[in-house]
């Protein structure tokens, strides 16, 4: 009985301990449109530092095959590019170990009408003119049905664990029945 109790306590501690980490391993990107330049910041959720040396792929509107620009994030996980046309720009970041994140950024014509900000000039331009289509699309989709990207990681983990236990249970039942029969 005591051993079972210790097991139960260990399992509960492990489960809740793990749950606090579960959100932490996802690769996330943040896109900030500045006047004439778009800045991409990549990093793991839950981390203060960015992903350094991550592979960045920028795809121009109407050209999803050939990358407009490729490169690597700097030591702080940042990468910048200069778009040359309005439309939906696809930004993908890959850390090279199986984690990838992608976003679509919609740039309007007004983005190209702004003057570049001179550092220290005191001028600033609000970045609101560039809409994050992914978020808009996601919020629209969430009204109908949650997409896979929206499902929290902890729920995915629970689904996976449930499926694994379910498969094991079915196999156990089938084997036990075969053995007894």
């Amino acid at each position: 009985m005591r051993k079972k109790f210790i097991w139960l306590i260990t399992l509960v501690i492990f489960w809740f301990g793990a749950a606090s980490w579960l959100y932490a391993h996802k690769l996330e990107i943040k896109i900030t449109p500045l006047p004439s330049v778009v800045m991409v910041e990549a990093g793991y959720s839950g981390h203060k530092h960015g992903l350094s040396g991550g592979d960045v792929f920028i795809y121009a509107p109407r050209d999803s095959e050939k990358a407009f620009q490729t490169g690597k994030t700097d030591a702080k996980g940042k990468f910048a590019f200069i778009p040359d046309q309005a439309g939906d720009w696809r930004v993908a970041v890959d850390d090279g170990t199986g984690h990838k994140s992608e976003q679509i950024l919609s740039l309007g014509e007004d983005f190209f009408l702004q003057k570049p900000t001179v550092p220290g000039s005191g001028e600033s331009h609000p970045p609101e003119q560039a809409r994050d289509v992914e978020k808009e699309k996601a919020s629209k989709e969430s009204e109908a049905a949650p997409s896979q990207a929206q499902v929290p990681l902890v729920w995915k983990a629970l689904v996976g664990v449930s499926l694994v236990f379910g498969i094991a249970g079915i196999l156990y039942g089938a084997k036990a029945r075969k053995k007894s029969g």
Partner: peptide, 29 residues
Amino acid sequence: RTEEIPKMGIMAAALFVVSLIHFPVAGTS
């Protein structure tokens, strides 16, 4: 064997979940 399956199931679940527990090393994870 039949008696091995529950242990395999628990281990598979542990392996599945543990990949989410990470720690930062040299700018990567």
